[in-house]
Design a binder for these strands. Structure first.
Length: 214
DNA sequence: CTTTGGATCGTCT
DNA sequence: GACGATCCAAAGG
């Protein structure tokens, strides 16, 4: 897994991200649901009406984390993809918890069952402790063959402020490939929670997975 | 199980 | 000044 894997169209990158692992501070989960947002040509994308302070990271280099705040109380996380200058991203909608379950339960007392820990875009950020401070984080730091971070300008806090890259248990948000391939035939359908372009089938999930959002 | 309404504030018009 | 790429508790079947 390297930076070039994130250069493509978000509709291609999104299903490829399924079964990868998102990790932070010892808490980790397998990505089981994603949505593609196509930037300038997608009315549902935050980047549709051009670059703003909030969306700056989306316009930067790929394989970085775009974190936004919504509904006055929730954080959501995206993986930036496509070439620099084109604002494309993949929203991470659900994880199947893998490690650090005790920490996640502590961070999300409202979750009654373990499958409720990360089965929504804001839930998984709460479970992993992802906030605006993580906006702009390079997701491949510390991986073999990965070069350094380029950082990015942002607005929601301190972009790329995460600590020493690559150290096990570091506070940095990272994307890992544990060898599990993406599903050969992922389930696909319309995106959730938007008012426009709802018919575009750009939501992908692992068929039969119990940790997919409601 | 499903449906409904309230919470809450950064961002852009 | 309006509105979210949402979540949760409560209420009804």
């Amino acid at each position: 897994m390297n930076r070039d894997d994130f250069m493509g169209d978000p509709v291609d990158v999104a299903p490829w991200l399924l079964n990868k692992v998102l990790e932070r501070a010892g808490r980790a989960g397998r990505i089981v649901e994603v949505e593609a947002y196509k930037g300038a040509v997608d009315p549902a994308s935050h980047a549709y009406r051009g670059q703003t302070a909030r969306t700056a990271v989306m316009f930067g280099p790929p394989a970085h984390l775009y974190v936004y705040f919504t509904y006055g109380m929730h954080w959501c996380a995206n993986v930036v993809c496509g070439p620099e200058g084109q604002a494309a991203a993949v929203l991470i909608r659900a994880l199947a918890p893998l490690r650090g379950l005790e920490e996640m339960r502590r961070a999300r007392p409202a979750a009654r069952r373990d499958r409720d820990l990360c089965n929504g875009p804001a839930k998984l950020c709460q479970a992993l402790g992802i906030t605006g401070a993580d906006n702009g984080t390079y997701l491949l730091s510390g991986l073999a063959g990965a070069a350094g971070s380029a950082g990015a300008a942002g607005s929601a806090g301190a972009p790329g402020a995460a600590g020493s890259a690559g150290a096990p248990g570091s506070a940095a948000v990272r994307l890992l490939d544990d060898g599990t391939p993406p599903p050969g035939r992922p389930a696909q359908g319309g995106r959730i929670g938007i008012r426009v372009a709802t018919e575009e089938p750009w939501r992908f999930w692992v068929a039969g997975e119990e940790c997919v959002s409601r």
